[in-house]
Amino acid sequence: MTEVVLQADGLTKRYGRRVALADCTLDIPPGRVVGLVGPNGAGKTTLLQLAVGMLTPTAGRITVLGGRPGDGPAQLAKVGFVAQDAPTYANLSVKDHLRFGARTNPSWDQALADARIAELGLDPSQKAGRLSGGQRAQLALTMAVAKRPELLILDEPVASLDPIARREFMRGLMAHTAEHRSSVILSSHLVSDLERVCDYVIVLTDSRVRVAGDIDELMGSHYRLTGARRDAADLPAGAEAIEHSHTERQSTFIVRSLVPVEDPSLTVEQLTLEDLVLAYLSRSVAAHRPELETAR
């Protein structure tokens, strides 16, 4: 197995003067379920499309499973991709989709595809256009996993699904991951979609990576501190303020600290993943549009 699933170094994508992704540096270890989170328009799709080779970088470098994205059939076979809104062919039946998958993918696993379709209770002769949104998403996932990729990339796979279909989709995805040990990168603009399934997170806003890492490590190194009003400069050594807010008497900080914060004058609390992600998101908002800080 490759040592690194995805490596990016100064990766940048511009469309004319507009920057879609700026100076992105990442090192994703194998076997992870990576959540790529950020608001709409942050650059998530651009990063994922660079990873599958649908886009080429303007500057910098990206390596996926040791190869250049989209570079020949061997590289394409290693990566399964489900684009946003799970595109399927409305006039083709479920069976036609599988036949198409078998023809176009040398590593196609027909038994796996058939088993998944049966498990989902889909009628093979049904036209994709007549499937529900959840069923279409499952069909698109089946197409991607049946080629037995080492890495599965999904762009907002559950954004348009209702809560039950979301859960069903994630159950299928996790079962596949457990059985085939593949790595997964999936994007969402909602942390709640990713919380249970991911063990690695990348926070992307305004075309930049704000934080990336193992969720357990991030959770173990971020705290909420509250206490009497003070400056961020007066925080305990080693604590970097990610977010701070103040009232007349009280200060609240979200900090990153690699050592436990031991200051008796501060109340130290653990964060949820959502708190942590929001702190990084609002930090970039505050940096770019300071006038918005009070409105949030």
Partner: peptide
Amino acid sequence: TIKDVVAKVAINPNTV
């Protein structure tokens, strides 16, 4: 099994 748990609860296999 880990697969049974994740297929039921929709969580990361590494968690189990």
